[in-house]
């Protein structure tokens, strides 16, 4: 449960305060309503993984790591590699985060990130095939929330995308020559991932009928609705999730216009910090 309202008086007051500030078009941390917090992206932070990224969005911290294994393709996609995305809160993330099986919030977060990457067709999965119908590479995106101060979807997407952009993967042609690919996979020649698109997710919160970009955790709790929208590089919408709350029909289209602008800004930032594309 990420609901701070159930915790202490100071949390309850903080949430009331958020709402009061927004009514005056201000935010508690001094940002404009449509402004992201400082974004830090570092790639290659975990050398053992094929690709990795550390992202901080204000006080929210996410790490993503990329791994590969060989496996059997799905019967309906014999000529495609397999993409698997799993994300979890580490117990370090907040008072409410505890070790244990994934919660519904963690599963939703992983699946929203997965859809953004999958539906944008960011990775050309046909280049992950070793022997069609028999053996393919499985690409694992694993991410963790190390500290939760809201807007986990945007932060996790940034981490996953940045990690993928800098990932080098085992050359499938060379993997085909191996006798024991499980043991030898990590020693195979590595080549850059076949990147076709760069999806960007922007989450908007509605507080007092105002649209808030990059909500902090108290802002998320004060929000009447939270909507995540992912765009491709060609400004198509490729994934969407109403994470919480309710929206008027016209609010939806107003949000889409804000997201369209913001996703360009975010994409430029990622390209300047990570490169690729």
């Amino acid at each position: 449960m990420r609901d701070l309202r159930k915790r202490t008086l100071s949390d309850i007051l903080r949430i009331k305060q958020v709402s009061k500030f927004i009514r005056e078009n201000k935010r508690m941390d001094g940002r404009k309503l449509d402004e992201y917090r400082d974004i830090e992206i570092k790639t290659g932070v975990v050398k053992k993984a094929y690709g990795s990224a550390y992202v901080s969005l204000g006080d929210t911290i996410v790490i993503a790591g990329i791994h590969f294994e060989t496996g059997t393709p799905f019967s309906d996609t014999p000529d495609q590699g397999i993409l698997i995305t799993e994300g979890e809160f580490l117990p370090t993330a907040s008072f409410y985060a505890e070790p244990g099986p994934p919660t519904e919030e963690e599963i939703e977060l992983s699946r929203v990130v997965d859809r953004g990457i999958r539906e944008s067709e960011m990775i050309d999965l046909s280049k992950l095939v070793i022997t069609p119908g028999e053996k393919v590479l499985k690409l694992f995106i694993d991410f963790n929330i190390l500290n939760d101060d809201g807007n986990l979807v945007d932060a996790a997407m940034l981490a996953a995308v940045s990690a993928l952009l800098t990932t080098k993967y085992p050359n499938p042609e060379k993997v085909a020559e191996l006798e024991n690919d499980r043991a030898e996979l990590k020693d195979v020649e590595r080549i850059p991932l076949p990147i076709r698109d760069i999806p960007m997710t922007v989450t908007i919160g509605i507080i007092n009928n105002r649209y808030i970009v990059d909500p902090t955790l108290p802002e998320e709790i004060a929000a009447d609705a939270l909507l995540s929208v992912t765009h491709t590089k060609n400004d198509e919408i490729c994934a969407m999730q109403l994470l919480r709350g309710e929206l008027d029909y016209n609010q939806l289209f107003e949000i889409l216009n804000i997201v369209l602008e913001k996703n360009k800004e975010l994409r430029e930032l990622v390209l300047s910090k990570v490169g690729g594309g």
Binding site: A239, M240, Q241, L260
Partner: peptide
């Protein structure tokens, strides 16, 4: 509200 696939605005 959910969406997947690709749609222009």
């Amino acid at each position: 509200l959910q969406m997947d696939g690709k749609l222009t605005h």
